[in-house]
Amino acid sequence: MSTPLEELFVKTRAEKRAALVAYIPAGFPTIKDCHRVIQAFVDGGVDAIEIGFPYSDPVMDGPTIQEAAVKSLENGTGAQDVLDALEVAVNAGVPSLVMTYWNPIEKYGVEKFASAIAARGGSGVIHPDLTIEESAGWLAATDHSQINPVYVVALSTSDKRLAQVTANCGGFVYAASLMGVTGARASVSSGAEDLVSRIRAVSDLPVSVGLGVSTREQAREVAAYADGVIVGSAFVKAILDAPSLEEGISAVTHLVRELALGVRGQ
């Protein structure tokens, strides 16, 4: 049985285009308004949604997502709110998954977390700080719950290790486009294309590129060689910068529409 996420990439590959994957932390800008952002993603034509589990020590995140995580935690966001947001996205008919640092999973309970994701209709979990060496329990749990464990690989990952990591990966491979933290950049690193081709040499899994993508032009550029384009900080920034929630939501919808054109090569 395949997850909705796996089915999505079969579809987008058949359509010869990339998928647009949008990220928002649960509980941001508030626990309820996060659900409106998810709806804005759907209205704009997103292909998949990542719900972030806000974490106190997000070492992979730049200032924009850090600020969102702080606000979300101040709003009292917990595991149930993350799962609720996931369910909102799933119920809107979009393949969805959770992105989280490892400790919240370990605290929740590894098997329990995997089965909770599955119970809410989630396709998987992206875990940027879980290494394959520490993954035995998690892989057993995701296998049992039939969800995708999504690993993040980097420009510095050797070919040998790419083969090892992707062999354990499910759904898609998350290729971090640059050496650094999340956040919009003026240009997408030229190393990303090379990384994607190195992944393709060792794995048939779809490859999605994240870190630094914020515009339609960048999405189009990445879509030329990747199966998915991941955007996060740009949405958070649109909401943080907007004078009101309404304007933030409409900016998000507009940006999703633009990016959706980009991933179709337009």
Partner: peptide
């Protein structure tokens, strides 16, 4: 591999593994 019983190990972004 850097463990002390169940403790230790490596929980880091893949970007740091090579270093």
């Amino acid at each position: 591999v850097g463990h002390f019983g169940p403790y230790g190990g490596r929980f880091v972004p893949e970007a740091l593994i090579a270093a």
